[in-house]
């Protein structure tokens, strides 16, 4: 096993503000987002993190991408710790989430070059890579159009291109097809498979079962911040459809909670 990404007993708890407590109808000042999470991702595979809203998927990906720090445990990305060497980790990963936006004022061309500069990509390499990605996603026709004037799908494709400016080994996509039309969604999933064929490691979070079945080599099911299953789709499904198996596990967790 050649694990390129490893989570070791990672936990994260958030402090709830008075406003959040009111919205969530709770008296508790703390909310456990992720509890004692451990799993590994092998080099060159697509790993899916499956779970309902609020399960802790985004928190997990944000910890891997060093946007937030775990309260305990460690995350090793390509040999570097996300806790003690976040800069090393940032140069090894490409991270995409709906939370990350591109400045509307600029053009795709400028914003791509800007992030390439921050990743210290050589100009010649930058131009070749940009041409490839822009052509791949059909951004080249809109390269000088302000991002504000692009469609949602085109913005998402540009975000993917920008997350890959430095040709990272590990690509982390949070809900990559959320809010996209079927054609753009297909373009994105096909591109993820292409990246895999080029030896890249990909972690995606989603709540769409068909996407996991189509894309992922292995899957981790996260419910209420706890990893309830992890392995190949066949082993996790245990003879059932992935969707049925998920709801079976979900019911058990909810019953236990009550």
């Amino acid at each position: 096993m050649d694990e390129i990404l490893e989570l070791k007993n990672v936990s994260k708890t958030f402090r709830l503000s008075a406003k959040q407590r009111k919205i969530e109808h709770t008296d508790s000042k703390l909310r456990v987002a992720v509890s004692d999470l451990s799993f590994g991702v092998e080099k060159g595979e697509i790993f899916g993190l499956l779970g309902p809203n609020g399960a802790g998927k985004t928190t997990t990906l944000r910890m891997i991408s060093t946007l937030i720090r775990p309260d305990s445990g460690d995350i090793i990305v390509g040999g570097s710790s996300a806790v003690s060497s976040p800069w090393d980790v940032r140069s090894k990963i490409g991270f995409l989430t709906s939370e990350l936006k591109l400045e509307d004022f600029f053009t795709p061309n400028y914003i791509y070059d800007f992030f390439s500069s921050l990743h210290n990509v050589d100009e010649k390499v930058r131009d070749e890579r940009k041409q490839f990605l822009f052509e791949k996603f059909g951004i080249d026709r809109f390269a000088e159009v302000r991002i504000a004037n692009l469609s949602t799908g085109m913005k998402q494709k540009l975000s993917i291109a920008v997350s890959l400016v430095h040709d990272p080994e590990i690509i982390i996509f949070d809900e990559p097809t959320n809010g996209l039309d079927v054609i753009t969604s297909r373009t994105v999933t096909d591109f993820l498979l292409e990246l895999k064929s080029r030896g890249k490691t990909i972690v995606v979070s989603t709540h769409i079962f068909s996407l996991v079945e189509k894309l992922c080599d292995r899957v981790g099911i996260l419910i209420d911040g706890v990893l309830v299953a992890c392995g190949s789709i066949e082993s996790v499904s245990d003879g059932m459809s992935l969707e049925d198996r998920f709801f079976d596990m979900y019911r058990k967790v909810m019953d236990k909670r009550q």
Binding site: S65, L67, D88, L100, K101, L102, E103, H119
Partner: peptide, 15 residues
């Protein structure tokens, strides 16, 4: 930048 969510994009770069 915080309001528009663009600062987070900057924070995941190795800067």
């Amino acid at each position: 930048e915080k309001e528009r969510g663009t600062i987070a994009t900057l924070l995941v770069t190795p800067v």
